[in-house]
Each structure stands twice: as C-alpha cells, then as structure tokens.
C-alpha cells in the first residue's frame, strides 16, 4: 500500500470520527443500550477483511491465513447477526402509550 493511499484513509478516518460524533451526540438514555448493541453489530464490518483472508483463489492459496480468516468470519458474523437481531428485539419493546 503506498503512502498516498494510507494518507487518504487517514483523512477518511478523521472525518468519519467527526461525523460519528456529530450524528450520535444527544442520544436519549432510553436508547443507550440498543445503540450500543447496534453499534456492536456495525463493528462486525471487520467481516470484509475476514472474507478476504478466508478466500481461496488467484494469489490466495490455502494456508494458515485461510483458517484464521474462517475463524474471523465466524466471529464477525456472530457479532453482526447476534447484534442486529438482539437490537431489533429491544427496539421492538420500546412502546409509546398510544
């Protein structure tokens, strides 16, 4: 990876942190728990890196990386599926009087 690409990602990182901070501040306490479990599911995005590692194809022979990748895919999927489902369960419980 060349330095330019890395610097570009650094810009993306800083801007995204800033955007995230603006988007999420002032969340009501009622939503703190589901926000957390939902955010947790989103952090399962690391699954994309895991998939790259677990694939077998041109330039990616079967080796230790494949197995590590598969484990990472499984863990990240637990996060994604478990996180989104449990968040939905919680948010379904929040009811208004009406």
């Amino acid at each position: 990876m060349d330095t330019g690409a890395i610097l570009m990602l650094l810009y993306v990182f800083v801007l995204a942190c800033f955007a995230g901070y603006q988007l999420i501040s002032k969340v009501p306490p009622t939503l703190h728990t589901p926000l957390m479990s939902g955010a947790n599911a989103i952090s399962g995005i690391t699954i994309l890196g895991a998939m790259l590692a677990a694939r077998i194809g041109p330039g990616a022979p079967f080796n230790a990386s494949t197995i590590l990748g598969m484990l990472a895919v499984a863990l990240a999927t637990i996060n994604v599926v478990g996180g989104f489902m449990v968040t939905d369960r919680m948010m379904g419980m929040f009811k208004s009087k009406n």
Binding site: M1, A5, I6, L9, V12, F13, A16, C17, A19, G20, Y21, L23, I24, S25, V27, L35, M36, A39, N40, I42, S43, G44, I45, T46, L48, G49, L52
Partner: peptide, 29 residues
C-alpha cells in the same frame, strides 16, 4: 470499533475505516 477501523487500514478498505470510526465515536460518547 477502533479495532475494525484499524483492520480497515491493514487491508486498505475504506468501508471498515468509516464504520469502525462510527462505532468508536459512539462508544466514546
């Protein structure tokens, strides 16, 4: 979230960096 963002740097993938940062920020708040 920060770990996911860093993994994004490692594989050079911006989606991970953005989503990871969002989670990092929400946890910090």
């Amino acid at each position: 979230g920060i770990a996911a963002a860093l993994a994004g740097f490692t594989i050079g993938e911006a989606v991970l960096v953005v989503s990871g940062s969002l989670v990092g920020a929400s946890g910090m708040i």
